[in-house]
């Protein structure tokens, strides 16, 4: 049995990668030849999204909004501009909207059609955000979906679901946890999880966070 399969590739070539990888290589190399794509720019984009852009950006926006009422006002008036103040810009030119959680209102973000997501402040979306169950159920049964994340929103609070589009992306500003009076922005940033800015969880409480 051990010798049933001889390697016929006597020049010791490599096994081609997956069909998906070959398709990307084919398209990319054709586009590079035509001058439509600059390989160095591709590398820079990958580096940015693998290493530089992530939910910490959004956490800094939230911590600033918690700490600085004037900033919160600017965020409410024009979230795209207020977020850009911290150096985070949407490269698709999408319009950012900040939605604030309060004791009366809890906000939840979804993209029912595909996976529109505020990359500049949250990085790329988690797998579940792109999944069919989340996309289809977040609008129909938001409380049920949030419960699966371990989040129970009080009955008396209104749940608002925001459906992202290619043009508009939403960032949830979670409620500032109690017991964080006088905390620095940096310390507050540690309490703000990715999921809390999508709306499927709350900001961490000081006892368990940081």
């Amino acid at each position: 049995m051990a010798h049933d399969h001889h390697d016929h590739d006597h020049d010791h070539g490599q096994e081609p990668p997956s069909d998906m990888a070959l398709r990307v290589k084919a398209l990319e190399s054709l586009l590079v030849e035509k001058g439509l794509v600059d390989p160095a720019a591709l590398d820079a984009i990958i580096d940015t999204y693998e290493h530089k852009v992530g939910p910490r950006n959004g956490a800094r926006v939230v911590a600033r909004a918690w700490s600085d009422p004037a900033y919160l006002d600017r965020l409410r008036a024009d979230a795209t501009a207020a977020i850009a103040e911290l150096g985070y810009g949407g490269r698709q030119g999408e319009h950012m909207v900040a939605v604030e959680n309060t004791p009366e209102v809890h906000n939840l973000v979804v993209c029912t059609l595909c996976s529109c997501y505020p990359w500049s402040v949250l990085g790329l979306p988690p797998v579940w955000y792109k999944s069919s169950p989340y996309r289809s159920r977040a609008v129909i049964d938001p409380r049920g979906v949030m419960a699966e994340f371990g989040l129970t929103v009080p009955d008396e609070a209104e749940v608002r679901v925001w459906d992202s589009t290619a043009e508009i992306r939403y960032l949830v500003i979670p409620e500032r946890p109690a017991g964080t009076e006088g905390w620095s922005e940096e310390a507050l940033t540690e309490l703000v999880s990715r999921d809390s800015m999508i709306g499927v969880s709350l900001a961490r409480a000081p006892e368990t966070g940081a």
Partner: peptide
């Protein structure tokens, strides 16, 4: 996988 990053970057770049 790397091809996912490449496909992602192609779209953003184009």
């Amino acid at each position: 996988e790397p091809w996912q990053a490449e496909a992602f970057a192609l779209v953003v770049h184009l």
